[in-house]
Amino acid sequence: MGREIQSPQEQSESYTVEQLVAVNPFNPEILPDLENYVNEQVTSQTYSLEANLCLLRLYQFEPERMNTHIVAQILVKALMAMPTPDFSLCLFLIPERVQMEEQFKALIVLSHYLETGRFQQFWDEAAKNSQIFEAVPGFEQAIQAYASHLLSLSYQKVPRSVLAEAVNMDGASLEKFIEHQVTNSGWIVEKENGSIVLPQNEFNHPELKKNTGENVPLEHIARIFPILG
């Protein structure tokens, strides 16, 4: 059927899964490799949207081969990739009747809270569904990173209580978290009221926005070289 493909067995020895996806995205035989790769992403705290979309597509082509546990893991990893729209990108490929299952419903609610900046509700809800995340290392940290990211797009200076709520920490653990950010990400703690000054970027300090106005790429200018010459 016009498939110009080599057998994946002989490839997987020399190819990484990423390369496999690039070369053979429409080969049903790579499905087990991709499933293993999802597990590997979970344990090794790595992430590949390409590979996961490829797997969801193969499930879409052959629904009878779908493994909902793997799908759930893909969705958890996608949540951890916020602020990218990856969670939606995955849901676009998951049939509605599958999305109706309890575990997916819970994930969809969690994504909704993250999408609408409601971190407190998110953490409350996550606590109720801890079984979904316990086996996924780095989950909390990833969400905290997203929270910090979103706060620093929005705030120059953020009250400590707002931060605490967003990253779901208090007391010593919050202190430690802030200390870490002070050392690594340039956060500053104000002496008088404990507010946090977030690092400057073009979104919370619009004056930093580069004047991207005129940036004509060389290849466009190259088109008039003959004239100028």
Binding site: P83, G117, L150, L153, S154, E165
Partner: peptide, 18 residues
């Protein structure tokens, strides 16, 4: 106020794409 803060975060998130 805390709801407003979430709305502002939503605004930032939804108006900034990757």
């Amino acid at each position: 106020e805390s709801t407003l803060r979430t709305i502002l975060l939503t605004y930032k998130h939804k108006t900034h794409s990757v």
